[in-house]
Design a protein around this nucleic acid. Structure first.
Lengths: 211, 211
DNA sequence: CACCTTTTAGAACAGCCGGTCTATTATGGG
DNA sequence: CCCATAATAGACCGGCTGTTCTAAAAGGTG
């Protein structure tokens, strides 16, 4: 985790002079693609087991070029990937929350979704936010912050949903936090057991405490 | 993860001929010590971020000697460390279960214990079982099995405790699984938030669903 | 087309990692 | 006290890692 500095694309570069942002300069597109493949790799293999080379290869780029898009190195990629993955899950959760007919339904559907992803990936696709955040705990603040935001957002979505079905705000917040923790934990159990059963059972059990 | 082979201490060596097991051959003691320091390092830094050298150093041994005690290399150390850490937590849990005046009390005390460990380690000491297991998911079966056993044991302890307080077996099993998942998840939230609050709130919330 | 910027290519590097090997030193039963 | 064995010491290796650097190509605007 050194501190390199390139002929910088400004990180999120808003202020280039001449041939700049009409829409999204090719570089931003490449950067986004790299974030996506990185998120996928981190989810399956974890942060430390995924090399810069792996990410570059998956993005069809020589590994040296990675540092053009991410001057901050692996840490910057990690933070971006966690933020992206967290956002993806938030979006999925929001969609489910919109369609669910009640909180119990939401829990069941969310657990089912995570279980499906897990099974389809041969139990490699757990929660990327959790895995990466724990791996670098205390060593990469930007990554922690990305994870923090992801969890807050998920919790807010569930909390809002609970409120919508008549739960008072205070209780909803606590229940939402329990739901996030329980699902996260059940995902781990499912991964370790190589079975979606824990996730399924948890949804049922969580539902009971919601009644 | 290669497959080395030494002039073997038989892994758990029961069958040496001449100068063998009166009590615990010094080697077994060293091995145990290595497992303990490895477990501690894995808990704080994770599996991949912890080098063989780190473990050797912490055990006051040159790194080459590690392979005398663990012919299976890092994977064997990992499996042993996870099993050990899992056992330690199980023992602590059993002690708490013995002293707790009811299930709610057990949850509260368990969460408090984990929270204390977390805070004292500057939020580096999460759950080693979870972290290591996720890091090597799909790549080191022995480690997965160690984690599996740990979770099963924890769950059994809680289940038994719930039964002791009058819950029917089936429901107790489901509640115990929820408790494990929720605590595990809350530990992650606490670590990411750098605050023991999630763990504390979860214990309260879990208690409600127990009533 | 000319020209400056953005972006990619790919080599190079120092350092570390897991693992192996052999020589040496403790250990402890006979 | 002897001697086989257990255990430690420490050098060594090939390979990989994150990172840096410079040169070339692509891109797009005037």
């Amino acid at each position: 985790m050194k501190k390199p500095q390139n002929t910088k694309p400004d990180g999120q570069g808003q202020a280039s002079a001449k041939p700049a942002n009409k829409k999204i300069s090719k570089g931003q597109k490449t950067r986004q693609q790299l974030i996506e493949v990185a998120a996928s790799l981190f989810q399956k293999q974890g942060f430390h087991a995924t090399g810069i080379f792996d990410i570059a290869e998956a993005g069809n780029l020589p590994k040296g070029s990675i540092y053009y898009h991410f001057p901050g190195g692996k840490e910057e990629i990690g933070a971006a990937a966690v933020a992206f993955a967290g956002g993806q899950i938030a979006e999925a959760l929001e969609e489910l929350a919109g369609k669910a007919k009640d909180p119990a339904d939401l829990m069941t559907k969310a657990a089912a979704l995570l279980g499906d992803v897990l099974v389809e990936s041969d139990f490699q696709g757990g929660c990327p936010v959790c895995l990466v955040a724990l791996e670098v705990a205390g060593k990469a603040e930007p990554i922690r912050l990305s994870a923090l935001e992801a969890y807050a957002r998920w919790q807010a979505i569930i909390e809002k949903h609970l409120c919508r079905f008549g739960m008072e705000k205070k209780k909803a917040a606590a229940q939402a936090e329990l739901a996030i923790a329980a699902i996260e934990g059940a995902l781990i159990l499912s991964q370790v057991q190589r079975s979606p059963a824990p996730l399924r059972r948890l949804a049922r059990q969580l539902t009971l405490s919601l009644a």
